[in-house]
Nucleic acid binder design. Structure first.
Lengths: 243, 243
DNA sequence: CATACATACATGTATATACTTTTGCCCGAG
DNA sequence: CTCGGGCAAAAGTATATACATGTATGTATG
């Protein structure tokens, strides 16, 4: 019988804290089933409705996934939410039933320009990783993906083979994203981009500038250029839905 | 005693729909207090816990605000949430310290094309409102805004003076948005758009296709075209934050 | 051996009930 | 007229209980 802290917050909040703390401490491992509602009722000495509310709200917040008849599990690291997903182009292409392939043009360590260091909010100059990858859908190039990566958060980025693992997958697995910034614009293709995407110079491209944070630290900066004629970004969003 | 629809969804969802629908129809006016939990219990014939859950979830989703000891109220129209805000161009321009002006080119009632009726998910042909407005930032045109509006949800749309009230503000005030779909692409300007935005034919434009729902009903369809050289869409988002 | 059934267990929903906390307001004492 | 006490109303929390629904598994039967 576990006793919850004697603070002034409502009971279901204490239960939520208890669960989150246990997850954080790795007490309940990642693939394993969490204690069932009835087990928590027994071990915490509160009613099932209270436990259920705590679990329901944690599920809505994205920490847990639940399956009726099966159990409660720790949710996979959050990919989701509106604009974040647009970046896993490999998964999108496969989901549409098409073939995805990528070509790594550049993978190196560089000293950032002054402007870039500023975007990373670095106090002083340190070297960073730099990659340029072209993504193909059925052998048609659709996206040029240029990334700058903070080596403090993602070491060994330069040792990966990104023709096999998508950069997105690797980054998501390596560090949790706590904040994302997107700037979307439409620009004409410059000579180099046009060559990579096999389009005319000056043709319309969708340009996505993206910064991700882990805590207060900028983790990655990405510049994604899509062939305007071959790609559009979609999102559907329900303010009321929780999943 | 009101009878809720006999669909396959859980009761608390029906109660949520009932409340959203009533707000949408302006049945419960904006400053007035909504019926109390006990009044809803009496009029809907469900238990107070069920009503409470419906109200709690609508509050969490941002539709309502509640004050213990006082009552339940309609929340002020939501600014927030990733991509939704990008549409209030008037507010954005003013916020940047610039002058906003709009020119109404078209405001009419039309019979939708087959394709359009399909987008509205209409079972049969009914007439809809149609507007075309150009938005200026310091006398420079930045956006052409074409909207199709469902008259069942927003009557009198065609009676408004949108050079004074922004279409966005009017729509937000009239009906709650429960779901939004965005499709963003980059396209070259056609002759008409080029004329309205004072750019060259074929110049890069950011094109935003947007549908909003109120409940299961499509409320508006918008086609927003931005001069690529003068505008970009930005968003910043924290997955962990829960308003 | 395979299928159907029974069973146990998990989450999901719905209700009745009780108590708590916050707020607004009326009304009486000063 | 003002201050304050008390009351009522409203949302917030907590529990017990019941039934519904989905899943896995073991067992009996053909």
């Amino acid at each position: 019988m576990i006793t919850l802290p004697d603070t002034a917050s409502p009971l279901y909040e204490k239960v939520k804290d208890y669960i989150l703390t246990n997850i954080g401490k790795g007490q309940w491992s990642k693939d394993r089933k969490l204690p069932s509602e009835n087990e928590l009722v027994a071990s915490l000495g509160v009613s099932r409705m209270t436990v259920h509310r705590a679990l329901r709200e944690l599920t809505a917040a994205g920490f847990l996934t639940r399956l009726q008849g099966v159990g409660t599990f720790i949710a996979p690291p959050r990919p989701q939410s509106t604009l974040i997903e647009i970046n896993n182009i490999a998964a999108e292409i496969v989901e549409r039933g098409n073939r995805h392939r990528s070509e790594v043009l550049v993978l190196e360590t560089i000293m950032p320009t002054k402007e870039l260091a500023l975007s990373f909010e670095f106090p002083k100059r340190v070297s960073i990783y730099h990659s340029v990858v072209v993504n193909f859908e059925n052998d048609l190039p659709v996206q040029v993906e240029e990334r700058f990566v903070n080596p403090a958060l993602i070491p060994d980025y330069d040792k990966q083979d990104f023709s096999k693992t998508a950069t997105y997958d690797y980054l998501m697995q390596k560090t949790p994203v706590t904040e994302v910034e997107h700037i979307i614009s439409a620009i004409p293709a410059d000579a180099e981009t046009a060559r990579h995407l096999a389009i005319d110079v000056g043709a319309c491209c969708l340009f996505l500038h993206r910064r991700t944070w882990t805590g207060a630290v900028v983790a990655t900066i990405s510049k994604l250029t899509y062939a305007g004629s071959r790609y559009s970004l979609g999102s559907r969003y329900s303010p009321s839905k929780n999943s």
